[in-house]
C-alpha cells in the first residue's frame, strides 16, 4: 500500500494543463511538418496555388512562436479532459480526489494565462470563471502508480464529432462510410488538418469514450492489430482525398491521422463514434 497526497495530483494537473497548451508533442509536430513537405511537392507537381503548403507553414510558425514567445498555441485552451488511472494499491490522502483535480485545473488555467471556457449551465451559460469543472475519467488499474493525462479539448472540433448506433449488418463498410461522411460534413469548420479519433463497439456512452481516448494515442505508432492498422490507413487516404485541405481551402492534408480503438459489444449492436480534434493535438501525461 502506497500513500499519495492528493496535493501531488493538483500540482501535476496544473503543470500538465499549462505545458500542453504551449507546446505540442514531437509526433504531432513531425506529422505536420511531413504533411507540409507533401503539400509543397504537390504544389510543384500540379502547379496549384500552394495555399495548402502556405497554411501548414503558418501552423508550423505558430508552434514555434507559441514556445518562443510564451503564448498559448490556440486561444481555445479547451475544456480540460483529465484521465486518471489509479493503481489499486494506492491510498489517496489529504482530501477529495475530484476536488484536487479541479483545483489543479483552476490553478493551471490561472497561472498559465489560459482561457476560461466553461459555462455552468448549457442554457443560462454563465462562465464559471476558472475553467472548472474538468471532464474527469477515472480508472482503477493494477499496481501502485497514478497516471494522469490532461487533454484540453477545443470545441470547434468537438462540435463536429458524431455518434451512430449501427445494426451489425452495416458491417465495416457502414462504419467506414460514416467516419468519412462525418469528416466531410465537418468540412473547414474544425480547423483542419484534423486528427480523427474513432471508437467502435462497447455501448452508447462507452463508444464515445473510446473515440476520445483514441485521440490520446501517439500519431507515429501503428495500430497493433494489422486489420485495424489497415483500416486506419484506408480511412486516412479516403479522408485526404476529400480535398477539404488545411482550413478547408483544398489540398491533400485534411487529416493528420485516423486512430481507432475498439471494444466488445452486444450481439444486436455496432456503435461507432467519431471524435474530431484539430491540429492543436494537445495531451500530456505524467506518472506519479
Amino acid at each position: 500500500m502506497r500513500e499519495v497526497d492528493v496535493k501531488l495530483i493538483t500540482e501535476a494537473v496544473a503543470r500538465l494543463a499549462i505545458d500542453t497548451n504551449y507546446d505540442l508533442s514531437r509526433d504531432v509536430k513531425s506529422c505536420i511538418h511531413d504533411c507540409r513537405l507533401k503539400e509543397i511537392r504537390e504544389a510543384m507537381d500540379s502547379d496549384n496555388s500552394g495555399l495548402a503548403a502556405d497554411i501548414l507553414g503558418m501552423i508550423e510558425d505558430n508552434i514555434e512562436l507559441a514556445a518562443e514567445k510564451n503564448i498559448p498555441l490556440c486561444q481555445d485552451t479547451g475544456l480540460a479532459c483529465v484521465f486518471i488511472d489509479i493503481g489499486q494499491d494506492v491510498h489517496l490522502t489529504g482530501g477529495d480526489l475530484r476536488e484536487a483535480i479541479n483545483e489543479g485545473v483552476r490553478r493551471g488555467y490561472e497561472e498559465g494565462y489560459l482561457r476560461k471556457s466553461v459555462v455552468a449551465d448549457p442554457f443560462t451559460r454563465i462562465n464559471t470563471q476558472d475553467n472548472t469543472p474538468a471532464h474527469i475519467v477515472m480508472d482503477i488499474v493494477p499496481g501502485e502508480n497514478i497516471k494522469i493525462t490532461v487533454a484540453p479539448k477545443g470545441f470547434g472540433s468537438e462540435n463536429m464529432s458524431s455518434i451512430k448506433m449501427f445494426p451489425p449488418a452495416a458491417g465495416i463498410e457502414g462504419a467506414k462510410t460514416f467516419i468519412v461522411e462525418t469528416v466531410k460534413n465537418a468540412g473547414g469548420n474544425p480547423c483542419p488538418p484534423i486528427v480523427v479519433g474513432v471508437g467502435i463497439g462497447s455501448t452508447f456512452d462507452g463508444v464515445a469514450l473510446l473515440a476520445k481516448k483514441a485521440l490520446l494515442l501517439p500519431l507515429d505508432e501503428r495500430n497493433e492489430d494489422p486489420a485495424y492498422a489497415e483500416m486506419e490507413d484506408e480511412l486516412l487516404e479516403r479522408i485526404n482525398e476529400l480535398d477539404i485541405g488545411p482550413q478547408g481551402f483544398g489540398g491533400k492534408t485534411t487529416a493528420l491521422a485516423v486512430k481507432i480503438l475498439t471494444a466488445p459489444t452486444h450481439i444486436a449492436g455496432m456503435p461507432v463514434a467519431v471524435n474530431i480534434n484539430c491540429h492543436v493535438q494537445r495531451h500530456k501525461s505524467v506518472t506519479i
Binding site: 505558430n62 512562436l65 503564448i71 498559448p72 498555441l73 476560461k116 462562465n127 482550413q247
Partner: peptide, 28 residues
Amino acid sequence: FAAIGGAGALMSTSIVSSELIAFDDLGT
C-alpha cells in the same frame, strides 16, 4: 476573411492594442 484557425499565437502578433469597450461581464 479567414484567419488561420488554431494559430492563435501567430495571429496575436499582429495585434498592436486591445481595449475592452463593452459587455465586460462576458469575460473572453
